[in-house]
Design a protein around this nucleic acid. Structure first.
Lengths: 204, 204
DNA sequence: GCAAAACCTGCGGGCCCCGCAAAGATGCGG
DNA sequence: CCGCATCTTTGCGGGGCCCGCAGGTTTTGC
């Protein structure tokens, strides 16, 4: 990868991270695209060369996470049962990355509250969902590769990808909603994926 | 319901329908909110009293459809097996309504092409997904009622609602993508839902 | 080194969306 | 039947978002 591409990725990440940080601190409509650009050290015009909207910048990190699930799934041993591999791939995204360890939120409570306000903004909800939907293709391809199905004509891989991502959404929302220690994000995901792989049978 | 409320619903429907028709004909960015308002016989300012964005107006019909699935599910006999009831509820939304019968598209081919362009607009994709997510709550409530689970604390009903809606998305996309007679929308949905209710087992 | 390609930036403008306050429509009780 | 309280519609104004375009600047491949 050339130097050019590296800088681009760095700028892109800086913009997305600045957007999230500022919006969690101040609220969505009190942050201008100009503020985000300044924070990342580029001109306002450049912001829109990287993202076609403020919302897309925020959702960009989410998109990356979803794409990494597909990547990890591909790297899992081929003889591992499908749903075990999927579960591991999904869980792998909840290990805190190096960036979060470097920049620990000073006030964890305030950050949490800001996050909750952020994910309540309609424009962002929509964009988060779209990000997941974009990753669906990559995830479906990984599933297809593993199950020997055709990602174009067969509906199965897309169905699995779509169900997994939406199950993850439900689990995450459950976690954010009850912002308590009583439940663990990972355990919520394990339960949700087990439901999926066992046919979503009603209790009784 | 008072006369006041009736008129509001009529205006809302007229705006949404005008938005869709104009955008399918001309393309998303060649339709101004002003055009939509004029078409529906209200002032431009009033448009934004009903919808907070152009995209939301378009997705409004989709939201209604999703909500009706929950409604139909509630009306199904209580002793019917869950997945049979869900399947019937979903399929019920593909019966052409009275409005479509009244206003048959003059050129079916052009309409199809316009539709395909429309659903490719990122802002609309996002808003369609958000509409489905909104309906998820109502659908989860209907599932909870039927299975005797708690829609607040238990993850099961939300999981089912979310999986059903995303499966429907996949089926619909499959249908739009291959715009051919070889496959039937209803059959695609039946297959997708059966996959869900049987644990998304990989073939073999 | 050097040309070609890619990128950043400022400018300009169209459009979207909202707050506000006045005018109009509607339903209710007397 | 009428006035009154309430909800709705509308015009105006403005802040902000996003994009096309064209210029200068940096990176790449040779």
């Amino acid at each position: 990868m050339g130097l050019r591409e590296q800088k681009k990725q760095a700028t892109r990440a800086a913009l997305s991270w600045s957007a999230i940080r500022l919006i969690v601190e101040r609220g969505y409509d009190r942050v201008l695209t100009e503020d985000i650009a300044n924070e990342a050290g580029v001109s306002p015009r450049t912001f829109n060369n990287y993202f076609s909207s403020k919302a897309e910048a925020v959702a960009s990190r989410h998109l990356d996470r979803c794409l990494r699930v597909a990547e990890v799934l591909r790297a899992r041993p081929a003889d591992e049962p499908l749903w075990d591999a999927i579960t591991e791939a999904v869980l792998s995204q909840f290990e805190p990355g190096p960036e979060v360890i470097e920049h620990p939120p000073l006030d964890r409570e305030a950050w949490s509250a800001g996050l909750r306000l952020m994910v309540a903004v309609p424009a962002l909800q929509a964009e988060f969902l779209r990000a997941a939907a974009s990753a669906e293709i990559a995830l479906a391809a990984a599933v297809a590769e593993r199950t020997g199905t055709d990602p174009e004509t067969d509906i199965y891989p897309k169905l699995v990808a779509s169900a997994v991502l939406s199950a993850s959404n439900v689990a995450t929302q459950q976690f954010i909603g009850r912002n308590g220690q009583p439940v663990d994000v990972k355990q919520l995901h394990i339960d949700a994926l087990r439901h999926l792989s066992t046919g979503l049978r009603p209790p009784d």
